[in-house]
């Protein structure tokens, strides 16, 4: 079976599910960020694959570039927040940061 659009979409679907799983189950905030990166990558694969199989319409590529830009900005700000949380709580485990509950 020759590789077509469906193959790329399937890889992206698996990557997306693994990202969601990492985001949902991990305690460590940095690991949750890695899950977000997996999700963004899977979305990018979809955009580029559709772009390729629509006779190389480059709109998908440009969308993917903006997604990469947003991912970089998100990672920088999120890690700054995580560092600040670590400074105040001595932990980055999402289940131990429950000051609002007490």
């Amino acid at each position: 079976m020759t590789v077509g659009l469906t193959h790329f979409l399937l890889v992206a679907a698996i990557l997306f599910s693994l990202g969601i799983l990492a985001l949902a189950t991990r305690k460590n905030a940095v690991m949750m960020l890695m899950g977000v990166e997996l999700i963004l990558n899977s979305a990018n694969i979809n955009l580029v694959a559709f772009s390729r199989y629509q006779a190389m319409n480059l709109d998908g590529h440009l969308f993917a570039i903006f997604v990469i830009i947003l991912a970089a900005a998100e990672a920088a700000v999120a890690l700054a927040i995580v560092l600040q949380i670590f400074k105040q709580n001595q932990t980055v485990n999402a289940d131990q940061i429950n000051k609002l509950k007490e």
Binding site: H61, I65, A72, L83, F86
Partner: peptide
């Protein structure tokens, strides 16, 4: 056949975001 995006992916993700995440792991 997305050559520009492939290079951008390696430069931004591997060269930037991953290093940032590793720093995050080390610092926290």
């Amino acid at each position: 056949q997305a050559d520009f995006l492939a290079v951008a992916q390696i430069m931004v993700y591997v060269g930037g975001i991953l290093i940032l995440l590793l720093f995050g792991v080390m610092l926290t």
